[in-house]
Design a protein around this nucleic acid. Structure first.
Lengths: 339, 339
DNA sequence: ATGAAAGCGCTAACAT
DNA sequence: ATGTTAGCGCTTTCAT
């Protein structure tokens, strides 16, 4: 039987209200009673029942975060950042995984709403947004979409993400800036994000007045093999035949590592003959063998922004803050692209 | 304003009770009323307020999981497994991170208890267990300690973990079984777990009648460098001088990868001259370059057991099930130890 | 098969 | 500075 407010009040011949006031740091309490209460609280190891509090106040001081997975460094950094940010403001985070696809995501949304979370942050994998539009009818809970643009028609929704186009662009511009003229690209999956980054790659070439050479873009390496393998085989294909290249942008760090291994096996010098850059800045991978330059996709910063945005939405008036927050990716230089 | 039970009841000229009964699948309701209720529930998109329900019933259908971090594959597999397991039984999981050390862990415990979780699962980083002993006085919430033995004095606590000694033992026995006679060991940190695995290594040597050669145990490679670097340098030290070795057990996969790279740089053939095995079975790492044999530390299975144990403790009588569940590690063979 | 009343532990609003 | 009353949305208990 846990200790209740009433127990403390009875013990001290006070009303529940006085005890409640002490616990919430109200001013209107005499120092002596305050001290008495705090002591008894400590003695009995009292913990307020937040369920009861929530029912009464209508606020749970809890937010929900839904992510497809936590396996990737990116996702776990993001979750950590959201957690830290909102916790500093007295909120807690419930993390839900939607690994089993969009049905699982929808169930999690329902669940978190049933739990009366004060805000909902979602790294969505939904193709369509109709599900969320349906929600907004009755619910006024702030919705923060992460890395996946939110439907404009939902007026309590905001979007926080990274400037995906810049991921491809900055990587490519960097290679060009160190003298690369024939930059190859190991393309990722044909997703919304994958396509944006590829656009950035092409934009950078165009802006530098360089031609876009389709033969230097490796695509369709089956997702059935590992990323390492795809990077390895991609580089082999690039290095074979007569398609010369002097720079390589890889969609992920693991693909870049695979590509560098393949280059090494062919006796190609990195960075002298081919400069390489990945994305994700997964430190453990980037610090192996030839240290790998990479585009940091700023998981922590995105999480921080998302957390702050949610806090703002909860407290502030409806229109507080921007509806779209875009965090810039960061270039991290290491040996693989140093000349 | 969210829809309440009362709204549905009023709409249909029923009492709240009837509606409540329908929603909880009670039998004593006529098919017609049931249908009417369900339809209205759907129309209004009603979601039961679990906060109110919890306050009334005393159960939240929620468990808390505290982990130091989710960056490692192991931890995220574990969390996923716990989540899946308990969710199938109608429970939800609140994941808390204790990255900032044991103070942060303790805050999380308080927090989750304040949230009235029905069970608490902890991958603890506490040195001492006095904190938890203090808890058990008033709290009867089931406590499941993961990978860190629980104090016997806490009677609502159970322990679920992996047989750490066997991690070192199985790896070593495997190398011996393929003919290695001079097995080296890249030792991990001097922690509880690190020491248990080292014990397994020595046990295996002893049982096979092989001498324990201290010069083949690499230790004290500063944690200030990356794991890759430590593995790399460790192998260089082993390969230099006259300490011959024909097998290597590494504390982590990343150390093994570093060691294999160092071996390659010295022209040493793996697995022919030196067979290598890691631990953790981090697939992304194990499938790079020379595929790495590894001891799978069964994060998913441990999580599953932990979840099941928690469920059993919640429903069953106090004494249900074993107080200690030990999951065996699994040997995963790949090329690095195939002869 | 359905309903009325009471109460879970807490706090907002209004006394005193 | 402290106390009283009422009620958050639901379910348990006891009617009918």
């Amino acid at each position: 039987m846990p200790v209740r407010l009433k127990d403390i009040a009875n013990d001290l011949n006070l009303s529940q209200m006085t005890v409640s006031r002490v616990l919430r740091g109200h001013i209107d309490v005499s120092p002596e009673t305050k001290a008495r209460v705090l002591q008894r609280v400590k003695e009995l190891n009292y913990r307020p029942n937040v369920v009861a509090r929530s029912l009464r106040t209508g606020y749970t001081s809890t937010m929900g975060l839904i992510v497809p997975s936590l396996r990737e460094t990116y996702a776990s950094e993001l979750a950590k950042a959201v957690d830290k940010t909102i916790r500093a403001a007295g909120y807690e985070l419930i993390v839900c995984l939607s690994e089993d696809g969009s049905a699982s995501e929808q169930r999690n949304v329902e669940l978190l709403l049933a739990h009366q979370v004060d805000a909902l942050l979602i790294v969505s994998i939904q193709e369509s947004t109709t599900f969320f539009q349906g929600l907004s009818h009755k619910q006024k809970v702030p919705l923060v979409f992460i890395n996946h643009k939110s439907p404009d028609s939902i007026d309590n929704a905001v979007f926080v993400g990274i400037r995906e186009v810049d991921v491809g662009r900055i990587a490519t511009e960097h290679l060009i800036s160190i003298g690369c003229r024939r930059v190859a690209y190991l393309r990722g999956p044909r997703t919304y994000i994958g396509d944006l980054r590829y656009t950035g790659f092409r934009d950078a070439l165009r802006d530098a007045g360089l031609p876009h050479r389709p033969e230097l873009v490796i695509d369709g390496l089956g997702a059935e093999t590992s990323e390492y393998r795809r990077g390895f085989d991609g580089m082999l294909r690039l290095a074979s035949g007569k398609r010369r290249l002097d720079g390589l942008v890889a969609y992920t760090d693991m693909m870049a590592v695979g590509a560098m291994d393949a280059a090494q096996s062919k006796g190609i010098d990195i960075p002298k003959e081919i400069a390489v850059i990945g994305s994700g800045n997964e430190v453990r991978l980037c610090e192996m063998r030839i240290p790998l330059s990479s585009i940091d996709t700023a998981g922590y910063e995105v999480g921080q922004s998302a957390g702050r945005t949610a806090l703002r939405r909860i407290s502030g008036a409806a229109g507080s803050g921007a509806r779209n927050v875009l965090v810039p990716p960061k270039l991290v230089l290491r040996r693989s692209s140093t000349r």
